[in-house]
């Protein structure tokens, strides 16, 4: 492996961007390809497929043997609101393999006693998201019910292209939220991506059940991500 390729690949991985190491098994040469980099022909098709599925594989193309090692960032879940739902969501996210963090400036809510073993920030979302930026491999769920806390985070999540954006609240609450987001500069297309009411419709009533519904909706959005990207690719072709 070319040391330069290793450095470049690790830099992409540290920055939570999808990247692929392409190795020609015939001569041992390798190169790093970022998601969206144009690669022509059958090899290009195999590379697009690898980014969509997140699966590494061998590919025989025009008599040459390649190994495509795709590195997709692990999914992250950012929850705005250290509420009862978040307490139930934290262990579920961990079991599902999601790296979860909670942001809530209300210090009475965001206490380590209520949230053991989880990254917890008792600060305003806009301050924390400045240091820990959102990205397309991050899901955001806003659950405080307080526009002062939720709105800034929502606006940033939409701008960052997060694979999932969900907001707790009734349809009536959401109608008002839409107006506020428009005032903050979010477009209609962006706003349409918000999942609200939050969570898959399983008739959830208790905070723990709502957490199940949210986790399921996040997983669904992540697994459908490939399909969404495929549709976008079709559009550009």
């Amino acid at each position: 492996m070319d040391p330069y390729c290793l450095k470049k690949l690790n830099a992409e991985r540290r920055a939570r961007r999808a990247a692929l190491l392409l190795t020609d098994l015939g001569d041992g040469r390798d190169r790093v390809i970022k998601e969206g980099d144009p690669v022509a022909g059958l090899l290009g098709d195999a590379i697009s497929q690898a980014f969509l599925s997140g699966k590494s594989s061998l590919a025989e193309i025009e008599g040459r043997s390649f190994f495509l090692n795709v590195h997709v960032p692990p999914p992250r879940l950012v929850v705005i609101g250290a509420v009862h739902i978040s307490q139930a969501l934290a262990p579920m996210a961990k079991i599902a393999g999601y790296d979860m963090e909670i942001i809530d400036p209300r210090t009475a809510f965001a206490t380590p006693e209520r949230f053991p073993d989880i990254k917890l920030f008792a600060e305003w979302p806009q301050d924390i998201l400045e240091q820990r930026p959102l990205d397309p491999y991050t899901a955001v769920a806003v659950v405080t019910h307080d526009p002062k806390i939720d709105d800034q985070a929502l606006e940033r999540a939409l701008k960052a292209g997060c694979f999932y954006v969900g907001a707790l609240g009734s349809r009536k609450t959401h109608t008002k939220r839409v107006e506020r987001l428009k005032a903050l500069g979010s477009s209609d297309d962006e706003i349409a991506l918000i999942h609200s009411p939050i969570g898959l419709d399983i008739g959830a009533a208790s905070p723990a059940e709502i957490a199940v519904a949210v986790m399921a909706e996040v997983i669904k959005a992540f697994r459908a991500r490939g399909l969404q990207t495929a549709r976008n690719l079709e559009k550009t072709v």
Partner: peptide
């Protein structure tokens, strides 16, 4: 304990490194 990050740090320390990868 990410192997590729460790490989990079070993390289920076001047150690000779091999990388083994499951390909199939």
């Amino acid at each position: 304990r990410d192997p590729l990050l460790i490989a990079e740090s070993w390289m920076a320390e001047g150690r000779d490194v091999a990388i083994a990868t499951v390909v199939e």
